[in-house]
Amino acid sequence: MEKKNKFYRVILYAILIIFAVTIVVPLIWLTIASFKQVHEFSGASTWALPQTWYFKNYINAWVEGQMGTYMFNSVFVTSLAIIFSLTLALPAAYVLARYEFFGKKVIQALLMAGLFVNISYIVIPMLIQVNDWQEFLRKLFNNEANFFINNHIALALIYASCSLPFTTYLLMNYFKTIPNAYYEAASIDGYGHFEIFTKIMIPMAKPSIITITLFNFLSYWNEYIMAFTLLTDDEKRTLPVGLTFLKGAERTLTDYGKVYAGLVLVMLPTIIMYMLVQKKITEGMTLGGLKD
């Protein structure tokens, strides 16, 4: 029996390790390969370490591949989209969770339906729509401004809007769990609706605000298809879009080192953040366990 149990455990570990290897090995290989020079890809073994740690790939990606500019664009669009999503979703979620009013059911139902509309489904009509709007606004103001196409602020607003169903849903569920007593106590103390919301409810909702911001950060930072469609100007691209162009240029030059350096530059911020947050989540879980 004891022996059989041991055998069983070995099999379990084997399954887990095989799967973990398929995830970790490509990532490590890619990171190592990002330090290789062009000629090392065709001649040497796939598994060979780089002859020298060729940091110039990163400089090439950053400067020639313009990944530096794209990094800045990505940081700008992502942070703005996070700010937009919280300013839009927090009050809406709070009101939907705690007030009764005409049309509430309809709004909730539409938001729920929105959960099933993926950004890829609507990217083409979105392009047509914002093109029309841009034409209209240009005629109206008689200028050539980029109101929607090649506009980072507009892209951030579109990101925030498209993530509204999920963001509102999650925050709404949290606001519902805050006991009514807080609300009543604040009311008696003479707080108005707005003050209760900003001074009491938002601070209390901090944990769920952090959670949703992390999810949104990942989806905004990684988003490709909408940015690819709405940002046509070379200078305006975000990191994922810029990366595909780095790869496109590479097909003729086969400078794989530079491409892999670009890949590492795109995934590094998300992996670092994930590792940091992972710790926070485990800590939170053990704390919750102690309280029970």
Partner: peptide, 23 residues
Amino acid sequence: FVFFALAPAVICFFAFMILPTVR
């Protein structure tokens, strides 16, 4: 309060999700 809390979200949701879907 309810109106001003909801209006921005509803307008954005309408403009950038409902309209493209309807289109």
